[in-house]
Amino acid sequence: MIPRPFDYERPRSVEEAVSILAGAGGRDAKVIAGGQSLVPMLSLGLARPDVLVDLSRLELNGIEAVDRRVRIGATTCHRTLELDPEARRLLPLAAEAARHVGNPRVRNRGTFGGSLAHADPAAELPVVAVAHGGEVVAHGPGGERRIPLAEFFLGYLETALGPDEVLVAVELERPPETSGVGFHEEAQRADDFALACAAAVVAPDGHARVVLGGVGDRPLRFEGPTDELPAAVEAAVEPEEDVFVSAAFRRRLAGVCARRALARAKEDAGA
């Protein structure tokens, strides 16, 4: 299908992007960067914005360690997380998860900031972000605002970002060196949307957290002793059935993903 016509703006700075968004009035303005979710949604008629604000030309990409955090620029593409040696060293959990996003062409173009701002409940990188913890750095008319990741995802395709705010970076907490990380996903085909996925961080004392994707309206975070978490996850999640799988099967997959991600994290901690 052909998208409905819209206006297109290519701001030269974040400030200009914010002022376009803030000045949109009653018009539906949407931010685009890689466009790997948005352009198909435009073509399918699922998104019908009046104006698109393109961030893809702004220099917002890049990954750097800042104290105990890693700052990921909004337009850093999935492929960088997956393949760049320094990115892999700093964020092994994101590297493992990024491998499962879309397909190679989607990962070449799709961005980390875009994945978080889009907030698809089955997406891998929001799950990784919540597992790390940290903050989303947004710019709005009032300047910079930092949103804790624990409060960022509000529901299906819904985040705490305001309509006049631009996500410019995400700062992820780095787990202590002695911790291990692991990711596991179950999907119908390689690189298809996750039926369920899990990201885990395990401390040497056995305390763990695991975050589940695809089984609720946002990433779901659980903490506790490693051995007790999978059962706790399976008991707590309330997935919905869809055309692919039943709710009961998805609940079971949540437990499987949690167990396997935790096992990998435990192994990683011992390594």
Binding site: S43, R105, N108
Partner: peptide, 28 residues
């Protein structure tokens, strides 16, 4: 036309992308 099949793959600045999932104006 929705980024799944790969038939429309092109190189955009030497990187493979699905042409259906990029706006023409983004290729300026």
């Amino acid at each position: 036309g929705e980024g799944v099949c790969g038939a429309c793959t092109v190189f955009l600045d030497a990187v493979a992308v699905n042409a259906c999932s990029v706006l023409a104006v983004q290729a300026e």
